[in-house]
Design a binder for these strands. Structure first.
Lengths: 184, 184
DNA sequence: GAGGTTGTGTCAGTGACTGACCTTATCACC
DNA sequence: GGTGATAAGGTCAGTCACTGACACAACCTC
């Protein structure tokens, strides 16, 4: 009964978010997630490679937006400026995904295994940015340093944003960049 | 037959390094590692919490050296300078561990699961540095930004060092710090 | 040498994940 | 309107990482 594939996938995502939230990550099994989504455990593993990945769906979109921003930036900005522009370009995605992101963050905070995956995902984004910078002719080591530093700046802004719900993430990124200049 | 506990642990480390290197990470089972080390699989899991952790033993020492360096640094250096001093203090450890580190790096490169763990370990070190900075009265957000940026600088230096085997890691850290100032 | 502590063996079990093979809905094209 | 091809799912059987409970042996202390 292949309705569309995407439907089952979405149901699995919701089911996992619910169950992980209600019963905890360790206490829920992949079979339970599948059951709540109305499919088999095997089908779960056709959509997601492991038990954690359900929580990190949609990260590809983020990567595309950010690398696209770097590729299409006008002029020839400095490497770090390019990276920060990429994060600014992604702000709408962060704003849109905020409600889900909060539930997810609470769950992730309860499990080291999930924190590990979250770190890996952030690093994957950073690696994509490095690639995009290189495509603009920036040498690998410089690109890597800029992308990592940019990630640090964004993390600093993002934490501030999480604390103050009414604030403007774009402005916070600018502030964090100022702080970086003070540090260096 | 409890010889000392530490002996079995060391044998397990070597056995894992050998088997992961020869047969690949995925293809070797924890039972095989235990067998080569002359113990039971159960004993393996008494020494290491999971299949990956054997490769990351001794990371606690690194953390202690680095946080110690921050705690005992004279004067009142800027946050980023403190972080870089911590990495410089750890240079002897990196030099001493280089042969094993190379074998380990090759293995890690073959498995996403291991890369994930490696990232997590680096982040754990960074978090420890953040704590040490806070103990010196530096505010959390500043400490976090400085630690992350410092990690980025060190990564840049470390990659250079991996490439040129005869170079001086301490000097490379200084150069990377200069590059950061250019970027920001 | 009695008794606690520590490291290990044994056993049984759970749950994440995989490969192989088979059904069924859906769509394209005749 | 039948007829394949294809994509999504189900079923089954199996492997392996990891855990809890219990028993035993070596060591240390007094």
């Amino acid at each position: 009964m292949p309705r569309s594939g995407a439907e089952a996938r979405a149901r699995l995502r919701e089911a996992a978010l619910d169950l992980y939230g209600e019963c905890g990550y360790d206490a829920t099994t992949t079979a339970e997630i599948a059951a709540r989504a109305g499919v088999t455990e095997r089908t779960y593993f056709r959509h997601f490679p492991d038990k954690r990945e359900v929580l990190f769906d949609g990260e590809a979109e983020l990567r595309e937006v950010m690398t696209g921003a770097i590729a299409s930036a006008p002029g020839s900005p400095a490497p770090l400026a390019l990276v920060l522009q990429a994060y600014v370009a992604a702000v709408p995605l962060f704003v849109a995904g905020r409600p889900v992101a909060e539930r997810r963050a609470k769950i992730i905070a309860t499990s080291p295994a999930l924190q590990e995956r979250a770190h890996a995902k952030r690093d994957a984004v950073t690696d994509a940015l490095i690639g995009a910078l290189q495509d603009r002719g920036i040498a690998e080591p410089t690109a890597r340093l800029a992308a990592r530093v940019g990630a640090a700046v964004f993390e600093r802004a993002g934490r501030e944003w999480d604390g103050a719900s009414g604030s403007d993430l774009t402005a916070l990124i600018g502030q964090a960049a100022d702080e970086l200049r003070e540090l260096a």
